[in-house]
Amino acid sequence: MAEDYEPRIVAFLCKWCSSAGSDLAGVSRMEYPPNVVPIQVMCSGSVSPLYIFSAFNKGADGVLVSGCHPGDCHYIKGNYYARRRLNLVKKLLEYVGLETQRFQMSWVSAAEGTKFTQIIKDFVKELKPLGPQTKLRRNP
């Protein structure tokens, strides 16, 4: 794999916990690779499987969905629906041969700037050896 390959990651962050946690990472000046571009959604429960398929289709090498920890959802239970729905998405993507590392989900609270930083670092590290994602990617 070329040394300068930089995976492209889209991260769907819920506004109340994970986006706030990512803000905290910023306020604390923690450093992580710039490969991830965040999209703030209201709740992890609003992340449709279509978003994930579409992101891969548009060329994402990795997709992250991050929400509040179970029991902490700002909308009471949106993250539980997300957990169920996205588990199915993960199983399906693996089944059609997408590398399991490419789709990830995490719980990041507003206080977990460190955890967010670590997740992004690990994600980029895991994606690099895989090279570009081509299976779902539309030919440009």
Binding site: N57, R138, N139
Partner: peptide, 11 residues
């Protein structure tokens, strides 16, 4: 195309 077919069937 391959990618579009796959995404269609995934959806």
């Amino acid at each position: 195309e391959s990618s579009e077919n796959l995404v269609y069937h995934l959806v």
